[in-house]
């Protein structure tokens, strides 16, 4: 973990209430896909933890949803502004055991970290199957980006406006895959676990209210089969076999 002052290169709306912010980093700051950054915003006491979507040796991209007062301020930020950021945080996804046909499932604002996973897999010569779930067409983002890097993309919308009508599990039940990497709302993670064959390995990214984001305050602890874990430091990614649903 480092504390950095990062300059915003761009901050744009890419779907309903969804924004993409790109920072200039000057160096490679991310270790694994699925890690997150914790941003200090003037006027707010605690930082805002946001997952990393993409990165290069000179940039870092986050995609966030406007859900409260902090993200309301973030969406108004412009290129050139400098933000105090702690990063990289969290354990990240380990793609080593993906097998030849990994399944990447993102629900809503859980989609962004899946992009980093897809890029890593493709760089390793593995083509992932991506399933994205949204409520409706206006909320869809990143689908073209996944296709552009060569992933197989499936979309589920609750209202049926695009792709399969229903939830991600309505798509996943007809697919064959060797592993699961996922991030999204808790009910989605739970449903995925229920529908996936028991022998399939999986890595599930969890969201929780955090204090510090780096393991000091115990604000985001959860119980696992391997003992108590801090979502921010020992997670946010838990291995399927250790999760207590």
């Amino acid at each position: 973990m480092k504390q950095m002052n990062l300059t915003i290169l761009s901050n744009e709306c890419i779907a309903e209430d969804i924004y993409r912010m790109v920072f200039e980093t000057g160096e490679m700051l991310v270790e694994k896909p699925g890690q997150f950054i914790n941003i200090k915003i003037d006027g707010f006491f605690l930082r805002r933890p946001i997952s990393i979507s993409d990165w290069t040796d000179n940039t870092l991209t986050i995609i966030y949803k406007v859900v409260g007062a902090g993200t309301e301020v973030m969406k108004e930020m412009t290129a050139g502004q400098v933000l105090d950021v702690l990063l990289p945080l969290g354990n990240g996804f380990d793609i080593m055991q993906s097998g030849e046909r990994p399944l990447l499932v993102g629900g809503g604002v859980g989609v962004p970290p899946m992009f980093g996973v897809a890029k890593e897999l493709i760089a390793a010569g593995v083509k992932p199957v991506v399933v994205m779930g949204f409520n409706e067409e206006s909320q869809i983002f990143l689908a073209e980006d996944f296709e552009a890097i060569g992933a197989e993309v499936h979309i589920a919308t609750a209202d049926g406006s695009v792709g399969t009508k229903g939830f991600v599990t309505d798509v996943v039940k007809d697919l064959e895959y060797t592993s699961i990497f996922t991030c999204g709302p808790l009910p989605m993670l739970r449903a995925l676990d229920s529908c996936a064959p028991a022998e399939i390995p999986g890595w599930f990214s969890f969201e929780e209210r955090m204090g510090c984001g780096f393991g000091a305050c115990m604000g985001c602890s959860c119980k696992t089969k391997y003992g108590n874990k801090r979502i921010c430091k020992d997670g946010p990614i838990l291995e399927r076999g250790e999760i207590i649903w």
Binding site: F45, L46, E208, R209, M210, G211, M218, G219, C220, S221
Partner: peptide, 23 residues
Amino acid sequence: RFGNPLPRIAECEAGLINSIGLQ
């Protein structure tokens, strides 16, 4: 001790409220 149920951290003006519960 595991401590209290989550959420157990909340931001407020000029500070935070915690109920970790001595984990």
